[in-house]
């Protein structure tokens, strides 16, 4: 079974972002970039499927600027066999990414596509569902367990009230939640080896797909800052403040 993994280059999750002073966007100059954490989990899941002998090949894909090849290299170092870069300098949102991924799916015909549930820059949580719709495939979103059984996929999903299990026919689309697995770190020899693995670059135009966003970003502002409050010295003082100052308990 062939597994495709979609990965996105995003700001490192430890970085505190700043909004540009002209409020046009977030300032990403000289900011550390990384593989989206949910995509790391997606790569890990695909690689584990290969290690278990369920998957035969793992292909990592990204849609984005030249620099996003760094994240493809990370995916290769983590165990993907080869990579595909759909190159574009446009601002790609979820629908555009899903359309480009659908083209790659059409060419590669994977049995399973694994994506992150959410990119931590846009916090969209859309691309996997959109890819599933565009390719007419079932979706197992927010997965905390994925089992391949008798040619079908059993996905346990994290939902608001707890857990839900669904069965999907293959080929299918899965998006990862945090507890699906704990990703490994790439070791230095693997990083060296990754450089020799195949990386295929195509432009969005070559694929014949419009990836640009139709949403206009009017402005980006910092959120309202909370005023750092006071330290109270005792439980009595806390209760007194909550009752008589904040008036949130009686």
């Amino acid at each position: 079974m062939k597994v495709l993994v979609a990965v996105k280059r995003v700001i490192d999750y430890n970085v505190k972002i700043r909004v540009k002073s002209d409020h046009s966007d977030v300032d990403l100059t000289n900011v550390k970039m990384a593989l989206n954490p949910f995509c790391e989990i997606a790569v890990e899941e695909a690689v584990r499927l290969k290690e278990k002998g369920v998957a035969s090949e793992v292909v990592a894909v990204t849609v984005g600027p030249k620099a996003a090849q760094e994240q493809l290299c990370t995916a290769l170092a983590l165990g993907a066999d080869r990579a595909i870069h759909v190159q574009t300098d446009e601002r790609v949102e979820s629908l555009g990414a899903a359309k480009a991924l659908a083209k790659v799916v059409e060419g590669e015909q994977p049995d399973l596509v694994i994506l992150g549930k959410q990119a931590i820059d846009s916090d969209n949580n859309q691309t996997g569902q959109m890819l599933a719709a565009l390719t007419g495939r079932p979706q197992g979103t927010f997965a905390s367990e994925v089992v391949v059984e008798d040619g079908k996929l059993r996905v346990t999903r994290e939902i608001d009230g707890g857990l839900q299990t669904v069965e999907l026919v293959l080929p299918a689309i899965v998006t990862t939640d945090l507890r699906l697995n704990e990703p490994r770190y790439a070791k230095l020899p693997d990083i060296m080896k990754a450089k020799k693995k195949p990386l295929d670059v195509k432009t969005a135009e070559e694929l014949g797909v419009e990836v640009g966003s139709r949403l206009t970003l009017v402005k980006v502002e910092p959120p309202a800052e909370r005023q750092g409050g006071v330290k109270v010295g005792s439980v009595d003082e806390l209760i007194d403040k909550l009752k008589n100052e904040a008036k949130v308990i009686s």
Binding site: I11, K16, I17, V19, V26, E93, S94, L95, I120, D121, S122, D123, N124, N125, Q126, M130, S213, R214, L215, T216, L217, V218, K219, V220, E221, P222, P223
Partner: peptide, 30 residues
């Protein structure tokens, strides 16, 4: 396109939504 988790309606086509874990608020027009 889809707009995720809007927190305010500016007009029938323009909305605010948090991005980057709420560390920025985007105004987006569709």
């Amino acid at each position: 396109a889809q707009l995720s988790e809007i927190i305010s309606v500016e007009s029938a086509d323009t909305f605010k939504r948090p991005i980057y874990a709420g560390n920025a608020i985007a105004t987006v027009q569709s």
